[in-house]
Structures are given as structure tokens and as C-alpha cells.
Design a protein around this nucleic acid. Structure first.
Lengths: 223, 223
DNA sequence: CGGTGCTATATTGTATACAAATGGCTGGGG
DNA sequence: CCCCAGCCATTTGTATACAATATAGCACCG
């Protein structure tokens, strides 16, 4: 989208995610406009988008606040993402063509390169990971599914999670992608779905472990 | 939301759904503003919302058009709805309390009253149906799930479908709700999910039959 | 005659001014 | 001392004017 509108969106979003604007903080349009160096119009636009992503909530009087995400909310999002992205993997497997398969292999190879060194390239890993998942989404051939998942994939959550990954967690992620590739190669939708579901749910537990120290957190019960 | 913004939203939406604005038609903000009797600002707001619902699409130059919904797109939406609402039913069953159960029973009784007469009260049926499903959604205890489904439940599609229902289709819908109630009473999540999934998929086929005359349309393949 | 680049025009993005509404604060009454 | 009511301040919603940008048509050059 346009410059000012994007600046407002990116600005507010990063303020929220960095904690500069803590959970529950009031989000006055005027104040945000000044902080972002734009007028209220693009700020309103940005707030609407952030509201759709549930990063911002509005009270009954249309006033905006930073949404407070409990671990349960994150679990909720991951659970739905696991289900939807599992479904996407199944559909992708059933529709897979060789060209797409090649792209996926290349993408996972990039990830491998990124995590091979002693000091893994986390940014590269995230980039490759995003590419891998978005190719699958595209291959699933459902625009609806893509649009639903867009609001569910909280890039910052992924980012924070990946930075807590150890080397063997990164490798494990890579090898799960490999298993997905096997399922895709055989056009085995059920297999692909199972692997993908597990892949996402593992990511959730990595997040939960790192952030709340609840090693035994029960996703199913809390979600 | 506010008056003018809602008027624009409702106006544009109904123009699209009534066919007054055919698929592919250009949606200039100025023109829409005039037709709705408001200024461009609320029209922009409305277009963003409609875009999120995939009723409106924008090209690379930010121009808006009426999205063309093929039967495949509708099938796509129904398939996802079946999955998500099935999931909601499972969760609701696992969390069901007696008060909610009572509300659901009352709601389904209302539906029964609406469809009993020779000339069924379709509006009453739709109203009751919406209430029934929204209670389940609420009982599922996942705000995310609710927000995802909101974009998926195209009220107008439901409306058009219900008007094509014969009396026995209405009764069937009612009795499927009854079966859901049984599953909820036993707190049997898997049962509830199965019934709900079937319930939604049946609705899709009723839609497909009525609108395209493709009695044997294969949801799984086209979706 | 076809292609490329420029210009005119239509359309969207942004800013600002103004209107409406909500919430809090203050002052008076019970 | 507490509570209620009315007013004021703050905040959001809407309209409109202006700026930026993309498209289409036309003219000119190859």
C-alpha cells in the first residue's frame, strides 16, 4: 500500500511488539499520528488492519488499545494455524506439480545453508521458512485459506521463537520440511497434513517453553 | 460502527449481492460515495471491510472491483467453514455447561416453531439458525475461531440457500441441530464435530443444487 | 505503419477542518 | 458524605480540499 499508510502500520506494529506500547495502552489516533509523522487518516487505516490481526482491540466506544495476548491466546492461534496449515499441506500434496516441488526443495536447501554454520543465520532461516510455507499455501490453491492464515501467522511470534531455537531445533525444523517434501513427492495428502500439524504444534511448544517456562504446558487444555 | 460508514458498507454490499454491481464492475470511491449519500471517507472504510471478506478485490494499482465468485470459491469457503465450525463444535462439546445447553435447546425450539406451519417462516428460521450457531461459537471459547469464521459466514449466501430449502430440508436442518444437542449433552466432541461438518457440507450442496443445477457437483474436487 | 514517450485525465492517498459522541469532572443537592 | 446531573474536554467520525500516481490516448519519431 501507500507510503504513509504503511509507515503508520509498520510503526505502530513495531511499537506494540517491542513493548514500547505495553498491553492495554491507549492508542489515540492523534498521538500515533504525531509519533509516526503522518496524519490521522493513514493511522486509522493502520489501526483497522492491526485490529483485524487482533493486535489491537477496540472498546465499545471505538477507542483502540493494545491487545493483551495471554499464553492461551497464542495457543489458540497456533492450534488454528496447525489445523489450517495442515489442511493446506494436504491440499498442496494432492495438487503438487514437479515445478513447485523443485521450488520447495530449493527453498529448504537455502534453509539448510543458513543453519549449517556454527553461528546460524537466523534471519536467513526465517526468510527461507516463510518462503517454504508460502509456497505450500500457494500450492493449496485456496485463496480463502491463504487469507485466513494471513491473520494467524504472527511473524513477530515466529521471529521471537526462532531466536530461541537452538541449533538442533533448527535442524529438526529443517528435517520436518524434508519429511513434508517426501509426502509431497508421493502426493500423500494425509501424510503431509500429519507432518505439518506436528511441525506447527512443535513450534508452539518451543514458544511456550521459551517464553513462560511452562515446559509441560498443555496446549489442548489451555487453548 | 458509525452511521455513515455502516450505510456505505451495507449499501455497497447489497449492491454487489443483488447483482446491481455485477462481478468485475469497477468500484470508484467517488461514484460509490454519491450513490450511498456519504463522502469518500466512509466508503474507503467500507471497501476495506468488503475486501477483507473477499467480496471486493483490488488490482495492483489499488483500484477496487467486485470480486467474481465462482462456484469453486463458494465451495472453498464452505469447506473451510465446515472444518472450522466442526472444530468449534468439538470444543463447545468439551466445554459445554448446562446453561448453554438450555439456551441451545430453546433456540432450536424456536426454529421448530418457525418451520412447523404450512408456510414456513424463513426469516425466523434464519434468525434462529444464526443464534444456534453463534451460541456454539461462543461456547467454543476461542475468540480467534470466532473472528476467522466471521469472514467466512456469508450471511447472504445462507439467506439465498434457505429460501431454496423445501420444508423437509428445513426439518432436516432442525433434526441435525437435535443431533448436535445429543452430542453436546454427552459432551462427545468427536460426535459433535462429525455432525457439524456434515451439517455445513449439506448446506453447501443445497446451495450448489439450487444455484448451478449441478446436482452431482463434487465439493472435494472443485474446492 | 508500428512503437514509444509524453501529456491529460481520472482515481486513489493524505491532510486538515469540523461535527458528533463519549467519558470524566465538578458542583450542587440529598 | 455520597450520589446524581450537567457541562466540558478529549477522541473519534465525516467531509472536503489538495497531492501523488497510474492509465489511456495521442502525437511524433523511427
Amino acid at each position: 500500500m501507500s507510503r504513509a499508510s504503511d509507515r503508520a502500520y509498520a510503526g505502530i506494529r513495531s511499537m506494540i511488539l517491542s513493548g514500547e506500547l505495553p498491553a492495554g495502552a491507549s492508542l489515540g489516533e492523534e498521538a500515533l499520528a504525531e509519533r509516526c509523522g503522518v496524519s490521522r487518516t493513514p493511522v486509522r487505516d493502520a489501526l483497522r488492519r492491526l485490529e483485524a490481526e487482533l493486535l489491537v482491540k477496540r472498546n465499545e466506544a471505538q477507542r483502540s488499545f493494545v491487545a493483551d495476548w495471554t499464553l492461551g491466546d497464542v495457543a489458540d492461534a497456533f492450534e488454528l494455524r496447525a489445523m489450517l496449515e495442515g489442511h493446506a499441506a494436504r491440499r498442496a500434496a494432492e495438487r503438487m506439480d514437479d515445478a513447485t516441488l523443485q521450488r520447495l526443495r530449493a527453498c529448504n536447501q537455502t534453509i539448510f545453508e543458513a543453519i549449517r554454520p556454527q553461528q546460524p543465520d537466523i534471519t536467513g532461516f526465517i526468510e527461507g521458512n516463510r518462503g517454504f510455507h508460502s509456497i505450500i499455501l500457494e500450492a493449496s490453491g485456496s485463496r480463502r485459506l491463504t487469507s485466513l492464515l494471513a491473520t494467524l501467522i504472527e511473524q513477530p511470534v515466529i521471529w521471537r521463537t526462532a531466536h530461541h531455537y537452538g541449533r538442533e531445533a533448527l535442524r529438526r525444523s529443517h528435517s520436518e520440511h524434508d519429511e513434508l517434501l517426501s509426502a509431497f513427492t508421493r502426493r500423500d495428502g494425509a501424510w503431509a497434513e500429519a507432518v505439518m500439524t506436528g511441525h506447527i504444534r512443535r513450534a508452539f511448544h518451543a514458544y511456550a517453553d521459551a517464553h513462560q517456562g511452562l515446559a509441560t504446558f498443555d496446549m489442548a487444555r489451555s487453548a
